[in-house]
């Protein structure tokens, strides 16, 4: 079977599994708010992976896109009284715009320098959020109303909100799949594989990277807006560099450059934090650190990557003489 067709089928299977699990999660007694939060982080990780896994760019400042969308949502719903869907669109646009700005400044740098520049720029945005008024500084932006969808469907009910968030998540997953399997996605992969060669074939690689950065920031904003809608507040925690680190970890554990790896990585980390926070306190950070090291040293491909490689080995029994 040809590569793309096999990849197509794998995605379809994965998508159905994730959608079914999502629909059934509340029925098997999982707490909806927990699953919603995890879905938001899963989308965050997928958006981050779009950049790292498919464009080969390691951003170390993605938390600010996550947080800026939360603040934008809070501002538009709470202060301006906008309808929910408009607030979400505004939040996505705000993150994408911030992505365009930071992207333009960072994209010319390569490798570790790119990561350092994104970190530095993100820290500047962090201090802006700390000092400026509408974010509520240290206190955060509290009491964001969930509002009504299209003016009719009230989202205060957790179950209703749950299915809304799930629908947004699944739609975003489809969009990401489309992006990585588009003509644009092909060029992105070429740039990741061999930048000089892509350049010599006439592609303005910086423009492609910038578009990838903006798309990634916008999708991260979608995740951030959803998360703020779920918990009803936005604080500086979401903008801090630790949050940028967490999304790197989620993506690595799940599998960089795989479509579902970040989803699994996010659920693993959010679940772990949820289970362990009461029992071991701040040791959670140490445990995450150890997982990070183990992943980097032993399981470069992450959970989904290792699984995929194992399946691939089983699918192709050793051919004689090869």
């Amino acid at each position: 079977m040809s590569e793309p067709r096999a990849a197509n089928r794998d995605f379809a299977i994965g998508f159905v599994v994730v959608a079914l699990a999502g629909v059934l999660a509340p029925a098997i007694g999982l707490y909806p708010v927990f699953v919603m939060k995890a879905l938001c982080f899963a989308l965050f990780a997928c958006a981050f992976n779009l950049l790292l896994g498919y464009a080969g760019l390691l951003s170390f400042g993605h938390a600010v896109f996550f947080a800026s969308a939360g603040y934008a949502l809070g501002q538009s719903l709470k202060v301006w009284g906008w309808p929910t869907e408009l607030g979400i669109l505004f939040a996505v646009a705000a993150s994408a715009a911030l992505g365009a700005l930071l992207g333009m400044l960072a994209i010319r740098r390569q490798g570790i320098y790119f990561a350092m520049v994104t970190l530095a720029l993100a820290q500047m945005v962090y201090f802006f959020f700390l000092e400026t008024k509408f974010t509520g500084g240290e206190d955060g932006l509290q009491g964001i109303p969930r509002g009504k969808l299209l003016g009719v469907v009230g989202l205060e009910n957790d179950t209703v909100l749950y299915y809304f968030i799930l629908a947004v998540f699944l739609a975003a997953l489809l969009l990401i799949y489309r992006i990585v399997t588009s003509p644009f996605g092909q060029v992105l992969k070429a740039i990741r594989e061999n930048e000089a060669r892509a350049l010599s074939l006439g592609y303005d690689i910086e423009r492609y990277k910038l578009l990838a950065f903006i798309l990634s920031a916008g999708l991260t904003g979608l995740a951030g807006a959803c998360k703020a809608l779920v918990v009803g507040f936005e604080t500086l925690t979401d903008a801090a560099w630790q949050m940028s680190g967490e999304v790197v970890l989620m993506t690595l554990i799940g599998g960089v450059g795989t479509l579902f790896g970040p989803v699994i990585g996010a659920f693993a980390i959010v679940g772990l934090q949820d289970q362990l926070a009461d029992r071991v306190g701040s040791w959670v950070q140490v445990i995450l650190g150890v997982m990070f090291v183990v992943c980097v040293l032993g399981f470069r491909r992450g959970i989904v990557g290792e699984l995929g490689a194992w399946l691939e080995r089983r699918r192709q029994p050793r051919r004689p003489g090869s």
Binding site: S182, P183, F184, Q186
Partner: peptide
């Protein structure tokens, strides 16, 4: 290296279609 042999050549060919920024279109 991690594209198929045909896809390598297609990267060279696809620019002239003018759709290389279209992230909403199927490959």
């Amino acid at each position: 290296p991690h594209l198929s042999v045909r896809d390598n050549v297609r990267i060279g060919l696809q620019r002239k279609l003018g759709t290389s920024f279209q992230f909403w279109r199927s490959a």
